[in-house]
């Protein structure tokens, strides 16, 4: 299987550096989440990989080859860039047939991907009658058309209903499980956390992180314990005896950072502190991401939607 290699990639639009000397590899067999606020350079990077934009400097290759040199590229790389790309006056099926024809992909595949993306029943309807979620599915169908080893999706869960979001999550997991290279951009942290194994994070065009997701989270956020009690004084003193500091929150619950529920459970139980709740507070990707971006002075100077 093939990987995506991005090497010292830079793209300037006028004086603005949309992508600034970025180097990373996207490996097969796992889902790589491509994170960053809107305008961080994720979409530009994807367009550069597909040879749609010319880099100012640096290279982007697929299995060592520039995308534009691939013969029948849809058989190697499937991409969703913009769900609005399908012409509104064509039917979903005809849209896919025009793409399939250009890469000698049999029409049988068109029916298969329509079935796979749940569009078979609306395939004959014109695309302008589709909801945003249906267009998104059509864009994903187009990406899967050539049964490619590399799949690149830009914000695929945009406009999908909850059922669609679960579907895309399972689809991404399955594609990676089949050994494909999967790169999925998003600005939604919880969503990305649900399917990604690995993360590439961009901010203001620069590479901020390229690490496994677990490592990314655990390096930045320690798990904690959440407690509710009817006797805060007893709780505080019991924890203090063991060197833990409990913090009270507005709704009356307490949290203890940098520790595990096994340890805290034993302490409070031995001290006979009455408990209403004792739970692990998982470190989230969102916390880790905010921690990362907080250290980026540019972000804090000009907060962006994230």
């Amino acid at each position: 299987m093939t990987s995506i290699e991005v090497q010292a990639l830079t793209k300037e639009f006028g004086t603005r550096r949309a992508v600034d000397d970025v180097t990373f590899r996207v490996l097969p067999g796992r889902v790589t989440g491509f994170l960053g606020p809107n305008g961080a350079g994720k979409s530009t990077t994807m367009r550069l990989v597909l040879g749609l934009d010319r880099p100012t400097s640096g290279t982007a290759t697929i299995g060592g080859r520039a995308y534009v040199t691939l013969d029948e590229p849809l058989r190697h790389v499937g991409a969703l860039l913009d769900a609005q790309a399908a012409h509104g006056s064509r039917s979903g099926r005809d849209h896919l047939r025009t793409l399939a024809a250009s890469n000698r992909i049999p029409d049988r595949r068109v029916e298969e991907v329509l079935e796979q993306t749940g569009l078979a029943s609306v395939a004959r309807r014109r695309v302008k009658t589709y909801s945003l979620g249906m267009r998104q599915r059509l864009g994903i169908a187009a990406a899967l058309l050539g049964d490619p080893g590399v799949v690149m999706l830009d914000e695929p869960s945009n406009g999908l209903d909850p059922e669609g979001i679960i579907w895309i999550r399972e689809l991404l997991r399955r594609l990676a499980g089949e050994g494909r290279t999967v790169l999925v951009s998003s600005h939604l942290m919880n969503e990305t956390a649900s399917f990604a194994d690995h993360l590439v994070v961009l901010g203001r065009g620069r590479l901020l992180a390229d690490t496994p997701m677990r490592e990314f989270i655990h390096a930045r956020v320690r798990p904690g314990v959440r407690i509710r009690t009817t006797d805060p004084t007893a709780l505080k003193s019991a924890l203090a005896r063991h060197g833990h500091d409990a913090v009270e929150h507005e709704d009356g619950h307490w949290t203890v950072q940098h520790t595990r529920v096994d340890e805290i459970g034993a302490i409070v139980s031995a001290a006979r502190v009455p408990l209403l709740e004792l739970a692990t507070q998982e470190a989230t990707l969102e916390q880790a991401y905010l921690d990362l971006t907080a250290t980026e002075t540019e972000f804090t100077a000009q907060p962006q939607e994230a």
Binding site: L50, L52, P73, V77, A79, D82, Q84, A85, H87, S102
Partner: peptide, 18 residues
């Protein structure tokens, strides 16, 4: 011009990059 709707050209040129 039917290619220039909402990024349609990108889709066409991704399929036929030459």
């Amino acid at each position: 011009s039917s290619e220039f709707h909402g990024g349609g050209l990108r889709l066409s040129l991704a399929a036929v990059p030459r």
